[in-house]
Amino acid sequence: MHHFYFLPGASGNTDFWQPLLQKYINTTHEGQIIAYPGFYNIPCEPHIQSFEQLSDHVLSKIVKPSILIAQSMGGLFAIRAALEKGDLVKGLVLIATSGGICLDEFNVQDWRADYHQQQAQTPNWFVKTQANYEKELASIKIPVLLIWADADPISPLPIALKLQSYLPQAELKVIRSTSHHFASLHSTKIKAYIDEYFQLP
């Protein structure tokens, strides 16, 4: 049996992972979505006032040997967890995320201003984080599955290829989509990729 922790993107939308999580219900595996206090109707917690404190909170929820499945900004938490909780994190599934690498060289659609207008209730410090893990990525030796859309304007495919160059053991799968949120729309295919890569029964 494998345990999955699902990490949402910048909106903190826990519903995003429901289509994939439901596909693991009634299997030998179990899953849990980690919510972000102060995001997506989740009550705030006074001690979380920065991206670093939110990151600490997310890592504190990882208490079982597990595979982390992370969307977009959630990938920053997944990478940090792999670096700091290697005894528990047995694999990563990174979907449309920077993974903590510098994006200056890429033609990335500026999503932050629009995001902040649409997600006015979420803390502004989340979208301003400059977390960078480039120097540490090569030390991640666990299995890593990268899943990208071929035409995502927010996280274009070249980002996945660059991330893969830092994680040479990583395998890349590409889905035809123009949506940054393709993982929620293609949960059947995502599950098939995860099951095959991690050899899940």
Rank of each mutant, 00 (worst) to 15 (best):
I42H: 12
V127E: 15
Q22M: 11
A138Y: 13
G75S: 10
P8I: 00
P153N: 06
S184H: 06
N124Y: 11
I154C: 09
F4S: 09
L161Q: 12
Q109E: 15
H57Q: 08
K85H: 15
H181G: 10
L83Q: 12
G12F: 05
Q169N: 12
T122M: 13
G74V: 02
E45I: 02
V63C: 14
H47T: 04
H3W: 11
K173H: 07
I69C: 07
I62W: 13
F126D: 11
L92V: 01
T27Y: 06
R80K: 15
Q71T: 00
D152K: 00
Q130R: 08
N107G: 07
P158E: 13
K90E: 15
K135S: 14
F51R: 03
N26W: 08
V144A: 11
G74D: 14
V93S: 11
P201A: 11
S155L: 08
W111I: 01
T129F: 10
W148L: 03
R112Y: 14
H2D: 14
M73P: 03
L21T: 00
Y36F: 14
G38H: 09
G12M: 07
T27R: 05
V58C: 13
I101K: 10
Y5D: 10
P143K: 04
Y197F: 13
F106G: 05
K128C: 13
T188S: 14
L94D: 11
L103G: 08
K162I: 04
G38Q: 09
K162T: 04
L54F: 12
I194D: 01
V174P: 08
F16M: 07
K189G: 04
Y115K: 03
Y193G: 02
